[in-house]
Amino acid sequence: MKKIVYIFLMIAFASANAQIITDRPTQTESSLTVNSGDLQIESGYLISFENDLKNTLAPVALFRYGITKGVEVRILSQFQTAKENNITSKGISDLQIGTKIQLLNNEDVNTKIAFSSQLSLPTGSKGFSSEKTGSINRLSFSHSITNNTGIGYGIGYDYFGFGNGNAIYSISLGTAVNNKVSIYIEPYGTFVNLNNHISNINTGFTYLQNDYLQFDFSFGTGINQKSNYISAGISWLIKHKSSI
């Protein structure tokens, strides 16, 4: 059963032996929360290209802290560099702060469900801030198919103070290659302003160094538009003494 730990890859199904369970590198968030008293840091580096615009996010830092069983608080911060037509600008993106709540996590049920909601605060640098308070919401599901393979999917709605907001979806299929390496493939997309559909696909892998440290690599491309990205990251679980 230990292999189930590595399936999560980014889909995250759970088993009693699971240690580090991350939200990165997939678009589909984990359907599990961090255990009470534990701190998890998920950091990465991402470069994306869209037409003549090159965006670099480095570092991206997500802090997850379990405040009680099935509930975690989350803080996301990232430094962004944008380059277009040989003009480069740098700054900090809007701070995101919120929570994830476990809705279903029963060992007798093959489905895990969690809901996360974060406020996007207009704290970013000029040119990198929406200048309005927004919200980012996700409902995440996961199911194990076999001991080595599982599927996760999510839906969401983001609103940043203007227009109709964006509807989000993603479906991630992952499998464990061995007790260290897992791979996944994931189509995902956005209905911008609840109208214009942008679809993408990505793939990647995770490498579990130990129960508390995981490395990841991913890349993706647009399906109905010209865009692509590449990303690498590291996640670190700091266990509370009482849970070790």
Rank of each mutant, 00 (worst) to 15 (best):
K69Q: 09
K83C: 06
G220I: 09
G174T: 02
P122N: 06
Q214M: 05
I230Y: 07
D108F: 13
N200F: 11
D94M: 08
N85F: 10
E84M: 14
N166E: 06
N164Q: 12
T146V: 03
Y184V: 04
N35A: 15
A176Y: 00
Y188G: 02
I41V: 09
S120A: 10
G91D: 07
G91S: 09
N137R: 03
K69A: 08
Q118G: 07
F160D: 14
I20Q: 00
L208P: 00
G163W: 09
I87K: 14
N147W: 07
I113M: 13
V5I: 15
I7T: 14
Q27M: 13
K112R: 15
Y159V: 06
K112E: 14
Q19R: 09
D23E: 02
D23A: 00
I238D: 00
I238H: 01
I198E: 15
Q118H: 10
I198L: 14
I41E: 00
V5E: 12
T146D: 02
T221E: 12
T28D: 03
N110H: 07
I230H: 05
E84N: 13
N51Q: 13
G44L: 00
G66L: 03
I67G: 01
Y212K: 12
G161Y: 04
N147F: 07
Y65V: 03
I244P: 09
A18L: 10
